[in-house]
Design a protein around this nucleic acid. Structure first.
Lengths: 410, 410
DNA sequence: TCTCGTTAGTTTGGGACTAAAGCAAGTCCC
DNA sequence: GGGACTTGCTTTAGTCCCAAACTAACGAGA
């Protein structure tokens, strides 16, 4: 039976998961940890003893009593580690340095040309200097890519928007940087971040939809990223919406993305004279803000199409909630008049009240998502992160600051 | 973390899985079992010893050597048990009696009126007499329902086509029949059967699509049925395809099912004069067989729409293979001319060669699928079958024939 | 004040499973 | 024929985790 997946590395999971939990949730009592991780209190006692002895965890205050004996809060020793998250785009690389508890320590952006012959060398150089700039124990690096990735561990990338095909990003970064590297589709990385810190915490199954340059979708099922048979799940940007619609970058006609992606909206704006030949997405949005009827109609129609597409996706996947994000989210209030009626109107009655969360956007969210990839590995019982996830766990256990810096071969 | 699901009953899984494997795969050597179930050879040795001692398993011949020591084949003791599978439709209940190894012992059909006030009593009566008619140790009953089911274990049903809403099928059957009962959406049940005996064996993630009265879709991800947040995943029949298309039973306009379901095709056939007012799906198909251009055009257009819809689903879910089934499959060769170009033409290049399996149809396949629900419980590490699955496992372990018949309260 | 109920945490014994190493039984090739 | 190799199965020692029974610490009510 091919799909029968047991935990990749039996054992060793509870301590990692506990560290991850303390990192993402903050101080927690043993009893609470046991409930959250679905293990027995006895196990938590044992594991905690070990983690305290190794200096990774400390006992803090007492929690307020809820009618019985108050719990003793457990907290992470802050020096236990940090991670780097990087997002690669067509013109720059954004990097964030994040603590184990998810707080951002720094956020930087480097110019980057993915089409250059030595693009990968440049990426290595950028990440290398980011490593030099930070202090403390580095657990690993997460890299978000706008394209499909065969697996987080191997990190072979197919990214048309970067002009990359069959590029072995993961292997090269790993060898040259000497730390675990996890590569993942950028939207999936966002979905992981949502799971650790956002709306995903309360739901086992949800969709993360991004609007902007492309239309992306991360699918989380029972707490795990769903990547599909070949890492290509969630390509909702290429759902066919019209019979003979505009040509899409993928080669088909009438894809959702060819209708409502940034470029498509700009093209329509140009045709209607809303913006000039050098107009930008921001220009289109500003036109809508000041009441331009054509601009608003462009967004409204985009909303109608997106609503119909997402209704189909909801019928297929049945998520508990949908989270909406992306560079284009600032213009969402102009999409809404078209989207709302279209989306709800096409849903079956019993799904019509599915919650919909619009998240504010920030430039470094992509990179934060990539960082979350690494921080999520302790929870990853399914082994999506593979051997690299295992390495991250080992580095986590190896503990605080004092170990020698990994040698880097350049 | 809500979605963190550990194995429902820790331990006890390997013996069950092994029995299930021997049932579905036939005689297998220990080494092969270890590989198939992804456990260590040592464990298989231990478990086998126990199962042989309990009379559930026997050693058979030697397997042919493949360069090394030949394996000793292990086989199930046939009397170890059987299951009943039932499929409920708008006018009848089909029931099959199936051995542990998946061979059908009998297949029956009973008239049934789901809209009657005492419909559930009638169902109990039908299943009760089916239980009386069979001999041997009954492990459990699987029930397939054309509608959404909250969970296999509780079995609360929402089935518009039967006129059932919030009907507690599972609980009632369980109490009155005194055996474990698993209730599931009929297409999902088919998907389970496909996993045990069909094309699903070789693939971890695949789609089972049915055409006929409705358009259904079962989604299998990494070897597990994906049911969505509320048991409503795979409702691809209600993906919106056209803006102001025909009214669908679900209340929306332009659903896929309202275009290409049996009723929709018949309506078009009536409009075009292909069949008379009392025409049937079979009549339409026969018209196409003898070359009626209108009939063929109806099927062709249905194929075009289905192709576009499935292309969208493939982009969303990224399955490894698609299996096509259903009452309507006999007419598939008339769908194909429309379907093929539409489906492939709307797919992204790297997914264009996704394999597509057309399975022959038989009347009792629905019921066989329901039976497979019970036979699959040994593999169900995720606990989809819940306590009822656990009960099935216990009955399996309790072993062959001799135990007293469960008392039935009527 | 003193039990009772509640919640938190620990100890203990044991079960399920594994890794590693060895034994068993064939094939293949010189 | 006899290694060398391959593959199948078992034994042993040990790990991870749990259930159950315990102790510990609190609030509330008689």
């Amino acid at each position: 039976m091919s799909g029968q997946s047991r935990p990749a590395a039996r054992g060793d999971l509870v301590p990692s998961a506990m560290l991850g939990l303390l990192g993402t949730r903050g101080p927690t009592s043993r009893a609470e940890v046991a409930r959250a991780l679905d293990v027995s209190p006895a196990t938590v006692t044992q594991v905690t003893k070990d983690l305290i002895a190794r200096g990774l965890v400390v006992e803090l205050d007492h929690a307020p009593s809820s009618g019985g004996r108050p719990g003793r809060l457990l907290g992470l020793v802050r020096s236990a580690g940090g991670v780097l998250g990087a997002k690669v785009t067509a013109d720059h690389v954004a990097i964030v340095d994040v603590d184990l508890d998810g707080t951002m320590r720094s956020s930087t952006s480097y110019p980057f040309d993915p089409s250059a012959a030595d693009a990968l060398d440049a990426l290595v150089h950028i990440l290398g200097s980011a490593m030099d700039d930070r202090s403390g124990h580095l657990l690993g690096i997460g890299v978000g890519i706008p394209g499909s990735v065969d697996s987080q561990a191997s990190g072979v990338v197919e990214a048309p928007t970067l002009g990359w095909s069959d590029v072995h990003v993961g292997g090269i970064l790993r060898r040259t940087l000497g730390v675990p590297v996890l590569v993942e589709n950028d939207v999936n990385a966002l979905a992981v971040a949502e799971q650790l810190y956002g709306s995903g915490r309360d739901h086992g199954s949800y969709l993360v939809v991004t609007i902007g340059r492309g239309i992306g979708c991360g699918i989380v099922i029972d707490g795990a990223i769903y990547r599909g048979a070949s890492g290509g799940a969630g390509e909702i940007g290429h759902i066919p919406m019209t019979v003979d619609g505009p040509l899409c970058g993928c080669g088909s006609h009438g894809c959702l993305e060819a209708h409502v992606g940034d470029d498509a909206l700009l093209r329509q704006a140009l045709e209607r004279g809303v913006v000039g030949p050098r107009g930008t997405s921001a220009g289109l949005r500003q036109a809508a803000e000041r009441g331009d009827a054509d601009a608003r109609e462009i967004y409204r129609q985009a909303g109608v199409l997106l609503g119909r597409a997402l209704a189909g996706v909801v019928h297929t996947v049945d998520p508990a909630v949908i989270v909406l994000l992306g560079e284009g989210i600032d213009a969402w209030r102009h999409w809404e008049p078209g989207f709302g009626p279209s989306f709800r109107g096409h849903l079956m009655v019993n799904k019509r009240d599915i919650p919909f969360v619009i998240e504010p956007w920030a430039e470094d969210k992509w990179a934060l998502g990539a960082a979350a990839l690494v921080l999520a590995t302790p929870f990853d019982a399914t082994g999506a992160a593979g051997d690299q996830g295992q390495l991250v766990r080992e580095r986590l256990h190896a503990g605080a600051g004092s170990e020698p810096r990994a040698t880097r071969r350049r």
